[in-house]
Design a binder for these strands. Structure first.
Lengths: 232, 232
DNA sequence: TATTGCTTTATGTATAGACATTATATTAAT
DNA sequence: ATTAATATAATGTCTATACATAAAGCAATA
């Protein structure tokens, strides 16, 4: 029997009490058992509701110590990282990918370090453009570990972008991503149709399969690009 | 009785099967009941394990249709947004905040639009610097809705940054955040001790309490700044 | 051919009860 | 007074069971 209280409605209710100041930052909440009595539901339902709020950073929960409103409410921004083509098409634009260069070579020291490669492994080096409505908006430089992913050598990267080929064909176990800003150089400027020195948004991403690096990519966005998301 | 299988170990196991290609993208997984039999646990435990993977974007789950490995494995980057002082102090540096300007004034049209203000509401306008080890690294421009948050007029923003005061004193219900890159102007350059035209990482953030805007802030980071996180 | 409605099935949620885990609080021993 | 052992209390997890819900598939209908 539901007794009219789902864990979601309880979560919303508790959230309102926090936002509304009924429970102040640092304040101890009633125990799960007490809340279960108040909302007339099982303790597990309360647990489900509070767990989400703790994951979102609104609550601090500790065994024995209880649940309290977070004093430094850490918020999280959740950025959706998906295939670039899908982002473009969702905006109603036509996506196209252009391969600029594709060669097998040994990487620079900084790349070798970042990818944690021991020996002088040969990698696949790819430079390409992501184009929306015939206007290039991302310049991409990528290194792919062909020892680990030999199949990519057979892929026609003129047709499908390396980005998409990898996402579809290789599952990764972990990755790290970083965001920064850079003044674009003359070559990049010409490729993405901008002025040299303009500030560009850059995403650096390295993905791993267990302990082995699959790929490392640097994506230089056309000046004016903005990445948005909702907070918590 | 645990029978040696926690939901976490099951989740890890399933994740390995996905990453390892045992279950291919698009492939249908066994039902929860079947997995419960395989792992010798209750269905609820399987549900708990798979739910997390679905939230992470690795699985698609639909009632009646079942659970399948995501075809377009959308990954999420989770960025932790907390008080700037804490970030600095965690790096072992000394944090300081400096107030540059503080006045009550009516905002520009673009700010009024962004904050969804109807009339000619007077706001609090604050300009400040975040300083680590005596080196300024963020320039901040902020608009605060004093009609909604009158208490901030009593705060000594020389001592505590508006950032921290707001986080501590005002709970918000929602917010949006965006990241971009900009060429800094001469004024900003001097404040954060950089060269005019350098590419800076910018965070724009607007927070809301229900339908009313609390504050809107633009944070210009010193060139070289990089925001990192792990993927999924 | 389309539409409507029924049945089935897999996931979603709720419950009560048990035990696990981990800090805190208390007590005993040194 | 400090330290070590023990009790206690709150959240964390697991189980078994039941019912809710959404969507797929099928059948009956117009």
């Amino acid at each position: 029997m539901t007794s009219g209280h789902s864990w979601q409605s309880i979560q919303t209710d508790v959230r309102k009490r926090i936002v509304g100041g009924v429970w102040q930052p640092g304040e101890l909440l009633p125990t799960e058992e007490e809340l279960a009595a108040e909302f007339n539901c099982a303790r597990a339902t309360i647990n489900r509701a509070l767990r989400g709020l703790a994951e979102a950073g609104l609550l601090d929960r500790r065994r024995k110590a209880g649940t309290r409103v977070a004093v430094d409410p850490t918020r999280y921004a959740r950025l959706k990282i998906n295939i670039i083509r899908l982002d473009v098409e969702r905006r109603g634009e036509v996506y196209r990918h252009a391969l600029i260069e594709r060669k097998r070579t040994t990487p620079t020291d900084s790349i070798r370090t970042r990818m944690k490669l021991k020996n002088e492994t040969e990698l696949l080096y790819i430079r390409g453009l992501h184009i929306a409505d015939e206007s290039p908006f991302i310049y991409e430089e990528r290194w792919v570990n062909v020892t680990l992913i030999p199949k990519i050598l057979e892929a026609d990267l003129d047709v499908i972008s390396a980005n998409e080929w990898l996402v579809r064909n290789v599952q990764f176990s972990s990755g790290d991503i970083s965001f920064s800003a850079t003044n674009i150089d003359a070559i990049e400027a010409e490729l993405i149709n901008s002025r040299e020195g303009s500030a560009a948004f850059v995403i650096d991403r390295t993905t791993w399969q267990n302990e082995q690096c699959i790929t490392s990519v640097r994506m230089v966005h056309k000046p004016g690009f903005r990445m948005r998301t909702l907070l918590s």
